[in-house]
């Protein structure tokens, strides 16, 4: 009895890791359909993209790397799908780290192919530019100031899309952007809100990692951002709003099982701990 209780209260971490590996991998083969109950902030983010009209412009900032891929990539793909479906013009950029561009291009090329969208006509990859404050202020004047050329080294105004982007204006800046959708895994999202939203009043929605979601709730409550998609659960709900089954729907089951397994371990630990105390 005593030995069992000791074992329960002090399970070796290696056992936990081993069980966890199976809890992550095995459910992936099940492919069940899980019910979803989207929260208000996710629905509002979805509607913000849905409300865009033809030839509106969405600026997508992919400020995350492969580490946040499972949480943010599914949302990015759905946002691109929504935009391409309605012929919304898409601009892609990152100002966090170069990795952001790679995951972004990955998604945009995949979705564009599905909707027969042409580079330079329907979407544009602006590239990666570090130096948060300078980038944001530069974009407020003229996008060409920050991105004279696109990712492939051609001037951005040499593309067909540019005439549509500038609308009746001569320059492309925040005034032309109908929605900014930020995918954030670092501190750059705060700067989008604190600098660009506060100074230029750009409409914004964010998809962030689960760890960072609590930090973005104050912005959402203060109505500085119109929507917020947090973590894998948010991504899963976002996919279900679009009635599509992507990466998040596939791996959500793993999270269900893993959360339950962790809870089982916590419960076992507590049972061992409490009964040991009662026995003295």
């Amino acid at each position: 009895m005593r030995a069992i209780l000791d074992f329960l209260a002090l399970i070796d971490r290696r056992i936990i890791y081993a069980v966890l590996i199976f809890a992550i991998i095995l459910p992936l083969f099940l492919k069940p359909t899980l019910p979803s109950s989207p929260t208000k902030e996710v629905i509002e983010a979805y509607n913000a993209v849905e409300s865009l009209k033809e030839d509106d412009i969405i600026l997508i900032s992919t400020d995350y790397g492969p580490s946040a891929y499972p949480e943010l990539q599914p949302v990015l793909e759905v946002v691109l799908e929504q935009s391409f479906k309605k012929n919304v013009k898409v601009l892609l950029m990152t100002h966090w780290q170069f990795e952001g561009l790679i995951v972004g291009i990955n998604a945009i090329e995949k979705v564009a192919k599905r909707y027969n969208k042409v580079y330079g006509k329907d979407y544009l990859i602006l590239g990666f530019k570090p130096g948060v404050l300078g980038v944001m202020i530069g974009l407020s004047e003229d996008f060409r100031k920050v991105f004279p050329t696109d990712y492939y080294g051609k001037p951005i105004d040499s593309y067909e899309i540019y005439k549509k982007l500038i609308k009746d204006d001569t320059v492309l800046n925040y005034k032309d952007i109908n929605l900014l959708f930020g995918f954030e895994a670092g501190a750059t999202g705060d700067s989008w809100v604190q600098i660009v939203q506060a100074r230029y009043g750009v409409k914004m929605a964010f998809a962030v990692t689960a760890v960072m979601a609590p930090g973005y709730f104050p912005y959402y409550q203060a109505k500085q951002i119109v929507g917020l998609v947090g973590g894998l659960k948010g991504a899963f709900d976002y996919e279900s709003l679009n009635k599509s089954k992507g990466l998040a729907s596939l791996i959500m089951i793993s999270q269900v099982v893993v959360h339950s397994v962790i809870l089982v371990f916590i419960l076992l630990g507590n049972v061992g701990f409490i009964i040991r105390r009662i026995l003295g």
Binding site: I16, F265, G269, F273
Partner: peptide, 10 residues
Amino acid sequence: ASASYRAFRA
């Protein structure tokens, strides 16, 4: 997982 197993004790 291992940290929360250790830390969440009543």
